[in-house]
């Protein structure tokens, strides 16, 4: 698999590993502990009295969305086990930096830039460590099974797309077209790199900007209802309210392409709670009875970083989309010539 999918797999289920040298000393995010232990800390207030969640944050993590099979039934690492995970992550990055990407020359997997050379390896950024073995909580730690109808829908869409992946720009993934990224969600999920976000608050509003790929969700907290269900948006329609110090965001009105392809009526509830000056506990529940047989929930800490969000103007140099399609046309020409011989 390509390095990109290697990273993807790390994030979303295949294995756990990886961690920067320095992060080892930062130890474990107390997020989970703090919440279960009750409130020991009260966040500061904005000028209009909201709990202040503002700042620049990252949800960069090695924790996969779904629990790997080998960790079935184990929801948390012990402190010692997590230390071993951190160490393994550090060794993996060291090896990558010393010897280059672990891919075989001359293979499709090898046709990629080395993430670490551009500072994009997740181990080169601050990590939101925590003891969970998967972002999805509960004894299973995996997404629930799809409904039979959802399986059918997905199979049909796949069959239609098959063989047409490179026909034109509209056949390419929405991320490659710089339209939307599923890490924006909601739910907010970590992504392979630039896994950063900024929260800004004004009277009656909270705004969450995700660096990948430049999107800002503006969330009113004034009690207004959702927009008409006839209006569908890439990131849905979010409305929020405060429950004590927790920001609760309710999102509906998604399209059937984002954040979960073929999920027609996703409903996402997010809870953001500042648990110490540098940590927000992020919790979410996703439901769509036409998609999954039951709702599923996740949580991960979001940790404060220094500096700023950098602009990610995705289309400013998206030569890749053009080059990819041109590559497909050249491949077709070559195949036609070969067939004519």
């Amino acid at each position: 698999m390509s390095y990109r999918y290697f990273v993807f797999a790390a994030a979303f289920g295949a294995f756990v590993a990886f961690g920067p040298a320095r992060a080892a000393g930062q130890a474990i995010s107390p997020a989970v502990k703090a919440v279960t232990a009750g409130k020991a800390w009260t966040p500061p207030r904005t000028s209009d009295g909201q709990p202040d969640l503002q700042g620049v944050w990252t949800n960069n993590t090695v924790t996969p969305l779904q629990r790997p099979k080998e960790l079935a039934g184990k929801e948390f690492y012990s402190e010692e086990e997590l230390a071993a995970v951190v160490k393994k992550e550090r060794q993996r990055l060291d090896l990558n930096l010393d010897e280059g990407r672990p891919t075989e020359p001359g293979t499709a997997d090898d046709v990629h830039y080395d993430f670490s050379q551009f500072g994009l390896d997740r181990g080169q950024a601050k990590m939101a460590w925590n003891r969970r073995t998967s972002i999805i909580v509960g004894p299973e730690g995996t997404m629930p099974p799809l409904t039979p109808e959802a399986r059918k829908r997905i199979a049909e869409r796949r069959a239609q797309a098959k063989g047409h992946e490179f026909d034109g720009p509209e056949n390419r993934p929405i991320g490659a077209r710089c339209i939307a990224r599923t890490n924006v969600g909601p739910p907010l999920l970590p992504t392979a790199y630039n896994s950063n976000l900024q929260i800004v608050q004004g009277a009656g509003y909270v705004a969450i900007e995700t660096e990948m790929i430049h999107d800002t969700r503006i969330i009113p907290t004034d009690g207004r209802p959702h927009i008409s269900s006839n209006i569908r948006q890439w990131y849905g329609d979010s409305v929020g309210h405060w429950e004590g110090d927790t920001l609760v965001i309710d999102t509906t009105n998604f399209t059937d392409l984002s954040p979960f392809e073929d999920a027609q009526n996703v409903h996402v509830i997010e809870r953001l709670t500042a648990v110490d000056p540098d940590t927000i506990l992020y919790q979410f529940t996703v439901e769509d009875p036409a998609m999954w047989t039951k709702p599923w929930s996740g949580e991960l800490p979001i940790t404060r970083i220094q500096g700023q969000i950098y602009e990610y103007a995705c289309h400013e140099a998206n030569y890749g989309l053009v080059n990819t399609l041109r590559g497909a046309r050249v491949a077709e020409e070559q195949a036609a010539k070969k067939a004519a011989k």
Binding site: S2, R4, Y5, V7, F8, A9, A11, F12, G13, A14, L65, Q66, G106, T107, A108, D109, D110, V111, H112, M143, L146, A150, I154, F166, R172, P173, G175, A176, T182, N183, G185, L189, T191, A192, P259, F260, E261, D262, A263, M291, N318, G320, L321, N323, T324, G327, A328
Partner: peptide, 20 residues
């Protein structure tokens, strides 16, 4: 990968753009 509609990181297909 996992058979369900998971978020996918796929910016663009490098192997479709460049020749191994």
């Amino acid at each position: 990968l996992l058979g369900a509609a998971l978020p996918v990181w796929a910016h663009h297909a490098f192997a479709a753009e460049f020749d191994q």
